[in-house]
Simulated assay, not measured.
Amino acid sequence: MKSSPKKRVQLAVTAGSAVLALLGATGCSATSLQATTLQYSASDGIVEQVGPVLLRNILIITSDEGEPGRLLGTMFNESDSPVQVTIDGENESSQITIEANDKYVFEDEVDDDGTLQGISEIPGALVDLDFTVNSESQTFRVPVLDGTLEEYREYVPGGFTPEPSPSEEAGEEDH
């Protein structure tokens, strides 16, 4: 049984309408990037890799622009041999040896606290740091934070002094 040309056109229009309705029901998700497929740093610091070294939650804590800053975070050496990591900042360079399949946690190091002199950016900004492992080098924009968050207060070089709130300042004027 053959269908008439008119019937075929009606079927094509119906099928096309169904496809359009289906696309409309899916919203923009058919053409939009899904945020759950993106990899990102789920922390305050950077999450990167240079050669066999994983950089996890690397950030700088400082009290203000021009003041010393302290590196926080962890570096993991995933290789079977020790590696030399060089971190070049604005005014200085640090070299750290990480043993094979070991880690270096800045917060745990008392002798070498990872202090960088004269951070040129205010808390909330990003500072370029060069990380070199063996002969591979990469520059990353590392966030600068202050002691506003309680978990970072003990790491602020020179200690953390909170800013007075507007209500505290107003109360001082009344006296």
Results as ranks from 00 to 15, higher is better:
Leu129Trp: 14
Asp146Phe: 08
His175Asp: 14
Ala42Pro: 12
Val156Glu: 05
Asp88His: 10
Arg141Glu: 15
Ser79Met: 08
Gly159Arg: 09
Asp174Phe: 12
Pro162Cys: 08
Ser120Leu: 09
Thr31Ser: 09
Lys7Arg: 09
Gly45Tyr: 05
Lys7Thr: 01
Val156Ile: 10
Glu163Tyr: 09
Tyr104Asn: 07
Val127Gln: 15
Thr36Glu: 14
Asp64Glu: 15
Thr86Ser: 12
Asp108Gly: 04
Leu72Ile: 06
Glu107Leu: 07
Val85His: 08
Ser41Leu: 02
Arg153Leu: 03
Val85Leu: 11
Arg153Gly: 08
Pro162Lys: 10
Asp112Leu: 08
Pro162Val: 07
Ser4Ala: 06
Asp88Gly: 12
Val9Arg: 01
Ala42Leu: 15
Gly45Asp: 06
Pro52Gln: 02
Met75Trp: 09
Asp112Asn: 12
Glu168Ile: 08
Pro68Ser: 04
Leu20Lys: 00
Arg56Gln: 14
Phe131Trp: 07
Asp113Met: 06
Gly66Lys: 08
Gly89His: 07
Leu11Tyr: 00
Arg141Asp: 13
Leu145Val: 11
Glu150Val: 11
Thr86Lys: 12
Ala12Arg: 01
Asn134Ala: 15
Gly16Arg: 00
Asn101Met: 07
Phe76Lys: 04
Glu65Asp: 10
Asp146Arg: 05
Gln39Gly: 12
Asn101Trp: 05
